[in-house]
Amino acid sequence: MDGAHSGGTNRRGGQADPLRAELERRLQLLADHGQRADPKDITAAVESIMATVEGDLSAVNLKLYAEIEALGRYIESAKAEIAEVRPDEIRDQHLPTATDELEAIVGATEQATNQILEAVESIEEVAGEVDEAKSEKITGAVTQVYEACNFQDITGQRITKVVTALQEIERKVDALLAAFGEEMARNQIKRRQAEAASKDDEKSLMNGPASPNEAVSQEDIDALLASFD
């Protein structure tokens, strides 16, 4: 045992309790100013770190306390900022919606391209029934349409890349939510209360085209309109 330990300034010696009391007092001050860290948690963390500190509780040790306090404040502030970004909404609403919309684009462009190709194939058949000059003209135009329809493959591949990127973001957000779950839950309750108080009914009606599985047919709309008569 060295002299410093036996001198009672080590945290495991006689001054451990006053230090702990001082730390808790400071953390309580933080809590009173709106910080949400549980002082017991941070105390436990500090104790764990201090358990590895040897020698006198000098100015260096006190500085360490201050640094850890600052770190605690920084973490709390970061958590609050992350919560404000609403990662739960990003994961549960925005990302799935974006993915669905992109997949709908791929489906719609594929369907349209097939319709175009079908129509152009019919035109191409006519090319065999007319004179050579006209036939050449028709075939040339038809070829240009075939070439232009390349776009569906290219845009489809690009959109697939975006969907893959969104899925990666979803995984990261999931990890974030797992780390800050409680914070998010508290914020969600507050947010829903605020949203309920300020709901804009007209804005909520502007959602753009419905996804194919949610879309309502013209017949359904006509039936609905007729039901008002």
């Binding site: 594929e110 391209t113 097939n114 075939y146 390349n150 569906q152």
Partner: peptide
């Protein structure tokens, strides 16, 4: 060989031409 059916159709049509 292509996983996009529209591309299969386009290449088939161009080959036919």
């Amino acid at each position: 060989v292509d996983d996009y059916k529209t591309m299969l159709r386009i290449i088939r049509n161009l080959l036919k031409q």
